[in-house]
Design a protein around this nucleic acid. Structure first.
Lengths: 235, 235
DNA sequence: CGAATAATTGAGGCCTATCAAACCGCGTGG
DNA sequence: CCACGCGGTTTGATAGGCCTCAATTATTCG
């Protein structure tokens, strides 16, 4: 539960050293003015910072999170390439953003959104997808058991399965899949509203029952996708 | 789920003459084609319905919720006048919508959003505010205790207090405020990720400690707003 | 006024958090 | 090469908060 800042104190300064800013070739057609490169686990912005810039995740994984004064942390979103973030209704960011893996991130001026209808459409569509994810996540946090949360989390890593248009297992083959978590147990716990110990116990239990295999700490093989899906609570 | 009278009370023609203030600035360019009137606790659309229409809440309160097959429900958003809902990234609604109070709701065609940049701006700004609310709510569901959830819920009803720009108690007066819940205990519980009994117990405990007074089942007087705010976990 | 619905209160149990210790992978350096 | 230390993970024991089930009380409405 207690969130320990990896780069306590000098964190921001040390993180910025990893940032390489590059001019974007096609600045005229595309409003991205520069590109940042971040190492893994570096903060992009903090909750409360002036929200004058937008970001587009070009490569890598980024998490958005909020903190309570006593250190409790909730990871509210996990962003994949293509996502736009740093959007805010008010003058400051309402969440903090941190890379989970090394990332390439396009930077835009917030005002570009007002001047570019094209960008606005991108933003709106991105927000709609994020909103659906948030709705699912609210259901997960409010109503699902620990086992259902972890199962849902793993299923989230398997594209095209578990949702409305789930195709079911591919014909004639084993219904297995290997996924890369790219998150520590602490980050998973903070995303799922659980403790690190509970996440670990659930994963161990799934392993014991043959549902999954642990390839490495952050690589899990799902031995039966359909069976895991049935453990998410949505069936 | 008993009633299927989704358009019950929708009197577009008669509704117009009663409209005093339009939430949108320019009523002439406004693409609202008709206005629905719904009694309290009527469903506007169901999760899974074809998402061909947008809605703008002109008056009343609406909740968005999701259901699991076994009946567990999570209320994901509570909308106040001015909110736009029924937005979806996919072809169908990802949530169900139901009125909490009798409501007046403007109906738009989904395609209007593509043709009207002005509407798109409205939608984007509305989505941004909803997203911030969802982030807060994820923190509530994932990391807050039952008492903190109820306190946060009550503080949500007091405009201008508890957020970043909280002004503190007004000068020279008692810091009290009466709020109308417009929700049953079950709906509050489903919103806060708790059971009806736990909500009831927390409210009783707050009453016992003098923090609040129960005027009526759905009217609560907060005797000390600042004290309640300190129970939300954000201080 | 009485039935139906909603809310409160109580008793007990389960699930998850907490606290604590052991374990593991991995890079370091003797 | 292997002991060592470090951070992260797993496992165990225990406790506590919230849920479940059940009964009572309050409120609404015909």
């Amino acid at each position: 539960m207690a969130y320990m800042d990896r780069d306590a104190g000098a964190g921001a300064g040390a993180a910025r050293q990893n940032v390489v800013q590059m001019p974007f070739a096609d600045a005229a057609a595309h409003p991205v003015t520069k590109v940042q490169r971040h190492a893994e686990h570096t903060v992009i912005f903090y909750e409360g910072d002036t929200a004058d810039r937008l970001f587009e995740l070009e490569d890598g994984i980024v998490m958005l999170f909020k903190l309570l004064p006593d250190g409790r942390r909730q990871v509210v979103e996990i962003l994949k390439p293509g996502a736009i973030f740093g959007l805010s209704a008010g003058p400051v960011y309402d969440v903090s953003a941190e890379t989970l893996t090394s990332s390439r991130i396009g930077v835009l001026d917030r005002r570009d959104m007002d001047s570019s209808p094209w960008l606005q459409r991108q933003v709106t569509h991105c927000l709609l997808r994020q909103m659906e994810t948030m709705h699912d996540h609210a259901m997960l946090l409010g109503r699902k058991s620990a086992a259902e949360r972890v199962a849902s989390f793993l299923m989230r890593m398997v594209p095209g399965r578990g949702g409305y248009g789930c195709l079911g297992p591919a014909e004639g083959g084993k219904d297995e899949r290997e996924v890369v978590l790219a998150m520590t147990r602490q980050e998973i716990a903070d995303y799922l509203g659980l403790t690190i110990e509970t996440v670990s116990r659930v994963i161990s239990d799934m392993k014991r029952r043959g549902l999954i295999s642990i390839v490495r700490q952050d690589r899990i093989r799902i031995n039966n996708v359909c069976a895991l899906c049935k453990a998410t609570g949505i069936h």
